[in-house]
């Protein structure tokens, strides 16, 4: 669907108003550069970071960490989710541990992760893994459980072998819910990488934030925050698109 001109006008109005007010404060001389820089200062910093290559390096470093942690979280969440939805005994076996671990925010694992793995890659990937695992696990299990049992009865009538049911009924039936889990998981993973990098890292977007603070450079901090927001939105947009391409039958 093509959006109309007036839609884009409304869509962009708020960010433009915010920028205008911000700029207005600067012209009135109310901004102090060491707490709140002017919009143009941030543009300058951005250009600097593009020129010296730090912008791209930080984004790719963070993104690769997310990819690793999310990949492991997806595989584990998907597998454990399907197993616990299909086998009540497996669910009973894992339920208590999962329910107790679930409310612990991944960030609360950072101290332990650093003690276990040091401040290298592993500790960050581990935190991201935790962030991605739970939403994917929960939504996969929920999705499989919500499949109508009448489809399994149908499969019985046509003597469809059990292993085939996984591909033909379980996964497609749960796919909408799994995709919701994946979107939440990617969102969480991105939050986790920033948090983990703020505490101990020498690169990445999260490191940009803590670096900017210790250098008293709010422009760097704000640039880092904008990157987190923009990259997060782009990733979610891509996942929405994949969802649409993948689930064509609804």
């Amino acid at each position: 669907m093509k959006k109309s001109f007036s839609y884009w006008l409304i869509y962009l109005a708020l960010p433009i108003i915010v920028l205008a007010v911000w700029e207005g404060f600067d012209i009135a001389g109310r901004l102090k550069p060491y707490t709140m820089p002017a919009p143009m200062a941030i543009v300058d910093t951005t250009l600097d970071y593009i020129k010296n290559g730090k912008l791209w390096t930080n984004i790719t470093v963070s993104f690769l960490r997310v990819l690793k942690g999310f990949g492991v979280g997806l595989a584990a969440g998907f597998l454990v989710g399907i197993l616990s939805a299909l086998f009540p005994k497996f669910e009973a076996f894992t339920d208590l541990v999962i329910q107790i671990l679930r409310p612990i925010p991944p960030i609360a694992w950072i101290p332990l992760a650093i003690l276990w793995f040091g401040i290298g890659e592993e500790s960050k990937v581990f935190i991201i893994f935790l962030g991605a695992f739970f939403p994917i696990f929960l939504n996969t299990a929920e999705g499989v459980k919500s499949i109508d049992s009448k489809y399994f009865e149908l499969a019985q009538v046509y003597e469809v072998p059990k292993p085939m049911l996984i591909w033909q009924i379980v996964i497609p039936g749960a796919l909408p819910s799994i995709m919701t889990g994946i979107r939440l998981g990617v969102g969480n993973a991105w939050v986790c990488v920033v948090a983990a990098e703020m505490i101990g890292a020498v690169s990445g977007v999260g490191h940009m934030l803590s670096d900017g603070r210790s250098l008293s450079r709010p422009d760097i901090v704000i640039l880092g925050m904008l990157i987190v927001g923009i990259v997060g939105k782009i990733m979610d947009d891509i996942l929405k698109l994949i969802h649409k391409k993948l689930i064509t039958w609804i």
Binding site: K150, Y151, L154, Q168, I169, P172, L175, W249, I250
Partner: peptide, 10 residues
């Protein structure tokens, strides 16, 4: 069956 019971994703 009373419902057609087609798999919606196929």
């Amino acid at each position: 069956f009373q419902d057609h019971r087609l798999l919606p994703w196929l």
